[in-house]
């Protein structure tokens, strides 16, 4: 039971990060029906910028309290990523807005490769350690350990999701976004500046991505120029699971995917241990008696779950869990 609870907590933390990244995918898709495959790279750049800022501030003995240094890291990463998001939209997507849907998908992949290699040139190929300056107290709840960083990640994610929902449903910009998503031509005729709204969507998504990057960095303590690729693909799967284009869907999909991964990786070894069915062959029974376990699929299949989910959703429910509320996407 303790193990189960612990896996749930791990899954929730991971899921919150996926949810924040998935929001970036789903917002852009909702408004321009484009999958921005470079979004994972934006998350990576957020982590790298924060790492550099936090590292140099912590190394310079400024006497600033650690929390302020981390906030300064986030404060630098967010505008940098927003600028990257804006440039991306302006350079790679806006000129192709009238083009067939395949064209912007290809530029998205191109941008992703360019960003990854730029990051490699700037921050080297080596895995970088994320400065660990904030003490990370660990609390025990019913036998499971929850660290301060985990609590911060989950609560910050919840705050950002609330903030984004408020932005989309309570502000003029949000109304313009929803209008553009429903029908760009008509929204334009009604006086909505479509280009500005689309650019804002990219910028907001990139800002969320930057914060997610800092979360990943502080949670695992490591950053690498390829870290965005897999994370981006998983978050994309989460967005599809929830119903791409749907805000609530991205949040739900992200958290569900995190839970599926944590529980899957935690239990797959035991579930596929052939020794549970050792009666099917004597050879197997002998090996079980000798080794105690013959595991068919180990925890290294952790990364497979996200994509199994993606395939299952695409086959059985292509619109995703909450996908039917088409009018709501933004």
């Amino acid at each position: 039971m303790e193990v189960f609870l612990q896996q749930i907590i791990n899954g929730l933390t991971l899921g919150s990060i996926y949810a924040i990244v998935a929001l970036g995918y789903t917002m852009v898709y909702g408004i321009v029906q484009l999958i921005n495959f470079a979004h994972g790279e934006v998350v990576m750049i957020g982590a790298m910028v924060a790492l550099t800022v936090i590292g140099s501030l912590a190394g310079a003995n400024t006497g600033m309290p650690p929390v302020v240094i981390v906030l300064a890291g986030i404060a630098c990463a967010v505008p940098v990523c927003m600028a990257v998001g804006y440039t991306m939209e302006r350079v790679a997507y806006r000129p192709l807005r009238g083009a067939p849907r395949l064209a912007p998908l290809i530029t998205a992949i191109g941008i992703s490769i360019i960003l990854q290699h730029l990051a490699m040139l700037i921050w080297s190929r080596n895995p970088l350690s994320f400065p660990q300056i904030i003490p990370n107290p660990v609390f025990e709840i019913a036998g499971a350990n929850v660290s301060g960083v985990q609590i911060a990640i989950i609560s910050l994610s919840a705050l950002m999701m609330l903030g984004l929902t408020a932005l989309v449903y309570r502000t003029r910009l949000g109304t313009a976004m929803r209008a553009t998503s429903e029908n760009p031509q008509v929204a334009g005729l009604m006086g909505v500046n479509i280009n500005r709204v689309i650019a804002s969507t990219f910028v907001i998504g990139a800002g969320l991505g930057a914060v997610a990057g800092v979360m990943v960095g502080t949670y695992y303590g490591i950053a690498h120029y390829t870290m965005g690729a897999l994370l981006g693909l998983k978050a994309f799967s989460a967005a599809v699971l929830g119903g791409i284009g749907n805000l609530a869907g991205a949040m739900l999909g992200g958290i569900l995917l995190g839970l599926v991964e944590a529980l899957g990786a935690g239990y797959i070894g035991e579930l596929t241990d052939l020794c549970h069915v050792s009666w099917i062959s004597t050879g197997l029974a002998e090996r079980c008696a000798q080794d105690g376990h013959v595991v068919l699929m180990g925890s290294n299949y952790q990364d497979v779950f996200a994509f199994l989910v993606l395939i299952a959703v695409l086959v059985f429910r292509p619109s995703g869990l909450l996908g039917e509320r088409v009018g709501d996407r933004a």
Binding site: L263, G266, D273, G298, S299, Q302
Partner: peptide, 25 residues
């Protein structure tokens, strides 16, 4: 010595929590 069932990641794994939680049990 009793050796538990082998757990595996990849050379890019940074999230070991699921595996470690199972091991902790």
């Amino acid at each position: 010595v009793t050796v538990l069932a082998r757990e595996k990641g990849t050379d890019k794994t940074t999230d070991w929590k699921a595996i470690l939680t199972t091991l902790k049990g």
